[in-house]
């Protein structure tokens, strides 16, 4: 006995006649074809897809997780403090940060010397953005030209991540440091 499925289509005689329904289907697809063809012929775009990368989408969802952006402070230095939170949380372990120490910059003594992301393994999950305590890493909604010819060229470094700014300036206005309560430190 044939198994009865809960979602088995219930077809009337007309539908079971097959041909009319086929014609209806052909009319639908043919209609789409004609409509789109007309658009093409009149110089408009009859497709939803984009000519990537010559043409990039402007209507990415704001929440789209594209490529990473390292934000900058007003002076252009990276916001990142090389805390490695992103690298630690990264499920694919693709972020590598080498920290440097700059005692002259009292507010931000630790800075990234090397900040690299291996896009050949990145899963674009966005956890790094969540983990960042400094809002130093974001994921722009735009998707950049990532593919490369070998896996080593898919490691993107600090400079590239800093300079790729699809939405223009991502320098973050950084609030002035709080007034320093005087302490007993010898001048």
């Amino acid at each position: 006995m044939r198994k009865q499925y809960w979602n088995e289509a219930e077809m009337g005689l007309w539908e079971r006649a097959y041909l009319p329904e086929i014609l209806r289907g052909l009319a639908i697809t043919g209609g789409v074809f004609v409509r789109n063809m007309f658009k093409w012929m009149t110089g408009r775009k009859g497709a939803l897809t984009t000519y990537y990368p010559e043409e990039t989408r402007w209507d990415y969802a704001p929440a789209n997780r594209g490529k990473h952006v390292l934000t900058r402070r007003a002076d252009g230095s990276p916001q990142c403090v090389a805390c490695n939170m992103c690298a630690t949380v990264c499920p694919a372990k693709v972020i590598e940060i080498e920290a440097g120490f700059d005692p002259a910059d009292e507010a931000h003594p630790k800075y990234p010397v090397r900040f690299e992301i291996d896009y050949s393994r990145c899963v674009f999950c966005g956890l790094c953005v969540e983990a960042c305590p400094e809002d130093a890493i974001r994921m722009a909604k735009e998707v950049p030209d990532l593919p490369a010819h070998d896996r080593w060229s898919m490691w993107l470094g600090k400079e590239e991540l800093l300079e790729w700014q699809p939405q223009g300036d991502v320098a973050k206005p950084y609030p002035p440091p709080p007034p320093r309560v005087p302490n007993g430190d010898r001048p």
Binding site: G30, V32, F33, N36, M37, W40, G46, A47, L48, Y51
Partner: peptide, 13 residues
């Protein structure tokens, strides 16, 4: 191309 146009795509280009 026809398949693309029918399904709102661009097709091979």
């Amino acid at each position: 191309k026809q398949a693309a146009v029918m399904s709102d795509r661009i097709g091979a280009n």
